[in-house]
Amino acid sequence: MSESSISLTRFSEAHIAGVTALYNDPAVTRQVLQMPFQSTEVWRKRLGVDDERQVKLVALHQDQVIGHLGLEQYSRIRRAHCGSLGMCVAVAWQSKGVGSMLLSAALEVADNWMNLRRVELTVYADNEAAIGLYRKFGFETEGLMRDYAVRDGGWVDTLAMARLR
């Protein structure tokens, strides 16, 4: 499958079932902070807020959701130059350019439309593929957060990463 068969679009109501299925994949769930077995209603509420400080994108292949990215500008006045992002890609589509497409599109909006100076994220310290992707886009590790979350019954460390423009 080529990148030309993948399209990016703004998240809409039509994508809720696909996003729910994506995040409910056990291999995806273990790399994000979401709980397993979430309902479509949970995702509808979470993603249904329409706010110009939020950019919500999905990557599609033949109308199937294969990736999701959310970018949010902070609302506090003294942090309005900053945003945070979170993303995931379906396991079958990892290391095939989908993450790069999502991140590139989000950072173009962050830089040229939201005027964000700083974009930050957290990533599990053992997720080498994601860390490599973020580094490719200029993110640098700012710290290690020990025992940040529970995963598979054990504690896992997280890296705080940011990209400054």
Rank of each mutant, 00 (worst) to 15 (best):
E128I: 02
G70K: 15
V123R: 08
R163H: 04
S12P: 08
E120Q: 11
I6D: 02
L103P: 13
A110D: 02
R165T: 05
R79H: 13
L69I: 10
L69E: 04
Y148I: 03
G83S: 10
P36E: 10
D50K: 10
W113V: 05
L69P: 09
L103V: 04
D50P: 08
I66T: 02
A162G: 06
L121N: 01
L69C: 08
V119Y: 03
Y148P: 07
V123A: 12
A129Y: 07
M87P: 07
N115S: 02
E52L: 08
G97S: 03
D50S: 12
F139A: 00
V89E: 04
T141M: 14
G86N: 14
V49T: 15
R10Y: 13
A129N: 13
R118C: 09
G143A: 01
D50T: 11
W43Y: 13
R151E: 06
L133K: 01
M87F: 11
A27K: 01
E13F: 13
Y148S: 11
E120W: 02
Y124N: 05
S104H: 09
T158W: 05
R146Y: 03
I77Q: 06
V32K: 02
E72R: 14
V49H: 15
V119A: 05
E120P: 07
V119E: 04
S39V: 00
V156T: 11
H15S: 06
N127G: 00
